[in-house]
């Protein structure tokens, strides 16, 4: 399956294609996305993220076509 991932710039983009999509095995969870993005463990509690714009946890199961979004503050105002 494929999920769309809006990853933070400090993540690894190795597993993301040009459409920012990531291929994952069936039954994958958000934790698998974090692992592929190589998000450092100490940072994880401070990140704000959603799956399909809903609050999610690392064990949230993913489905084909899901959207995983990370908060990236816009400079501005």
């Amino acid at each position: 399956m494929k999920v769309k991932v809006y990853a933070p710039a400090f993540a690894s983009f190795q597993h993301l294609d040009d459409d920012s999509s990531m291929k994952l095995p069936e039954g994958a969870t958000l934790n698998d996305v974090f692992r592929r993005l190589k998000i450092p463990l100490p940072l994880r509690p401070f990140l704000v993220y959603t799956v399909n714009y809903e609050k999610a946890g690392l064990n949230t199961p993913l489905n084909n076509g899901d959207v995983v979004s990370f908060l990236t503050p816009l400079a501005g105002g």
């Binding site: 809006y6 990853a7 933070p8 710039a9 993540a11 983009f13 920012s20 704000v48 959603t50 714009y53 959207v67 979004s69 990370f70 908060l71 990236t72 503050p73 816009l74």
Partner: peptide
């Protein structure tokens, strides 16, 4: 480097 964000997440901020 710069990545494309999902802008709607900034609504929370």
């Amino acid at each position: 480097r710069v990545a494309v964000p999902d802008g709607i997440m900034a609504a929370g901020i």
